[in-house]
Write a protein that binds this DNA or RNA. Structure first.
Lengths: 143, 143
DNA sequence: TATAATCCCGACTTTGAAAGTCGGGAATAA
DNA sequence: TTATTCCCGACTTTCAAAGTCGGGATTATA
């Protein structure tokens, strides 16, 4: 089970924007530098995030990116989904229903895991990550 | 976020053994056939599971594998760990402590996620999967 | 004692997606 | 007009998962 760096990059970058993008747009280069991400690669991620409405961009000199909506209304789950990093633990692809019982006795397990993770990440917003930088959200209300 | 088929294979195979290995050892070929897994590949997985004590093997004709201990004392987490599929969502590698605040504001998030998933998968044993083949363990007590 | 079944093992190849790169086009502030 | 920045598709590189292979060791059984 693996969380790729794409997902981590995306979330880190969004938190970065939450912190530094209050007054004016932030350019890719600045975020990339602060977060230690390849600028070209980060740009590709921003593309996806923008297309999902999580980012708003301004072109031209002094342009850059800002969050598409308030920090309290962007969840970690939103961000991961936008960059194609949401979890689907099931093999069958579909979150429910599986023809072969003998082979898919574990289907329910993976579907449950998927929901469990989704519930967790869907309950954490950028606001939490911004104001509580290091503290681990251990005792967060789980769905 | 991705669960590789290695993890799914391992769990499916263990459930298969729980069902068919009550009386006598089950050979790799039989499990592979039932679960639709490449026999050679499954054998490699069984190697790992045995080395972790989750399986017990009998060599020679009519030999095969059996569970290393009771179904109620083998969790999904055990199985995934044995085949190297346990989740560590943190980038830093260490479940806690991170030097760079600016870059690792999300560290706590991933550490929390790791614990959350671990708690879920650590609470489900092969016994549950065996007796409740298809039903999704949605409302399971989460750690 | 042979033979077939089975576990056992390391090393190898294949495959596919993540990670990262590149060159050029379009918009805009100064 | 120029520098800055977003925008885009296509491309290469990298790496681990997935799968294969050949041979050795053990044991029930005929």
């Amino acid at each position: 089970m693996r969380l790729t760096s794409r997902g981590r990059y995306a979330v880190s970058a969004m938190v970065d924007l939450a912190r530094h993008g209050a007054d004016e747009p932030v350019c890719v280069a600045a975020v990339a530098r602060r977060q230690g991400i390849s600028p070209a690669y980060l740009e590709r991620l921003f593309r996806q995030l923008r297309q999902q409405g999580l980012l708003h961009s301004t072109r031209g000199a002094r342009g850059g990116y800002r969050l598409g909506r308030g920090v309290a209304r962007i969840t970690v789950s939103d961000v991961l989904s936008a960059v194609g990093e949401s979890l689907d633990a099931t093999a069958c692809g579909s979150p429910d229903g599986c023809r072969d019982d003998e082979r898919c006795g574990t289907h329910g397990l993976w579907a449950g895991l998927t929901r469990h993770v989704e519930g967790y990440l869907g309950a954490i917003t950028l606001a939490e990550l911004d104001t509580q930088p290091v503290a681990a959200p251990t005792t967060l209300k789980s769905a």
